[in-house]
Nucleic acid binder design. Sequence first.
DNA 1: CTTGAAAGAGACACGTC
DNA 2: GACGTGTCTCTTTCAAG
Lengths: 155, 155
Amino acid sequence: MTLDDNDKAILRELQEDASISNLNLSKKIGLSPSACLTRTKNLVETGIIKKFTTIVDEKKLGIEVTAIALINLSPLNRETIHSFLEDINKYPQVQECYTLTGSHDYMLKIVAKDMESYRNFIIDSLMQNPAVSGVDTSMVMSTEKRTVSVPIDEV
Amino acid sequence: MTLDDNDKAILRELQEDASISNLNLSKKIGLSPSACLTRTKNLVETGIIKKFTTIVDEKKLGIEVTAIALINLSPLNRETIHSFLEDINKYPQVQECYTLTGSHDYMLKIVAKDMESYRNFIIDSLMQNPAVSGVDTSMVMSTEKRTVSVPIDEV
DNA sequence: CTTGAAAGAGACACGTC
DNA sequence: GACGTGTCTCTTTCAAG
């Protein structure tokens, strides 16, 4: 499962703009349309390309609040972890959830319409799980960079 | 710039799978193909849809390390902020950068091939900027959730 | 907004190198 | 593997209702 320069060029281009046609993509990377299509399908087939998605401007939809919340569970065991992650995957407001090294168990990135709906989410949803023992929120004042692009050149 | 239920349905569907054809999309939301296309183009035109992109599986490309780094600048002023953000936007390893409330100035999400290349990035790139006075790294042990989908229903 | 139709473009499967 | 041809489907645009 090793990628050559053509595959990397395809990934780089599709990360930038997935709405490009196969014809234009093949021109850009200097391959025939059919060869280009075969490679792209292979990338989807092998799961290297997970999905094609649409980036929506949150602010224009009225999402005014973004927050980073550090979470602790107590007790921290198989059952509480399972039920917590089950909750997380239900909540569309939670865009990211990571298990971290250090003094906090999880880091969440949460979006909400405004401060009140953020507070409601934390209190009425997240903290309804009795295992959630600590929620340490930092507000995002501004987003300086945000991408889902993987640095192809560094691999 | 207010969205009706059809617009929301289009956004929900396109966030889920941007490779859907206009024909299938129109069927799913119960609209004629031409009406559906007009709406989708309008969403792109008004910037509510920012871009179409491709989600790539980082692990399959050999990205083994994800880290959360909390950054402090010293001194913190217009010049150091400007030069720091200029750097950040240059580095493809930095996928996210937020200005936070609290005791740290910035939070970065950084990906790297392995621990060594992460260390090299921090020392040889990030800390080369003399204004970067503190780098507090937490390693991501596992990614439990990660999406770019905006919760359309909450708006 | 829908329907219907026409034209253009792209996707995809072949055969060939 | 890559290329080129041919076919088929989808997209797109235009009417009219």
